[in-house]
């Protein structure tokens, strides 16, 4: 069991799934998002091979209206 913080919300997983699988579960596959893992940008091209690890902190962002 691993525990990962996603946008400040802690979620637990039985196995260390890939970032791509996580995005699929959250229905974010193919959406216009950017992702930061433990303070570093995780490029889109690495979503498939990167596995989540216990204690990871993810930030997933989108563009919204703003001045």
């Amino acid at each position: 069991m691993i525990s990962v913080s996603i946008n400040g919300e802690v979620r637990q997983f039985d196995n260390p799934i890939s970032v791509a699988t996580l995005l699929e579960q959250m229905q974010l596959t193919g959406k216009r998002i950017a992702l930061e893992r433990n303070g570093e940008i995780l490029p889109r091209g690495q979503f498939n091979q990167q596995l989540l690890a216990d204690g990871d902190r993810l930030e997933i962002v989108v563009a919204v209206g703003g001045g």
């Binding site: 400040g8 959250m26 229905q27 216009r32 997933i60 989108v62 919204v64 001045g67």
Partner: peptide, 21 residues
């Protein structure tokens, strides 16, 4: 055009419209 960057929904609102569209 300025835009802001904010946390995405994480599955609770899969049909949320996207500003970039």
């Amino acid at each position: 055009i300025t835009i802001a960057i904010r946390r995405s929904n994480i599955g609770q609102n899969p049909n949320e419209p996207n500003l970039l569209d």
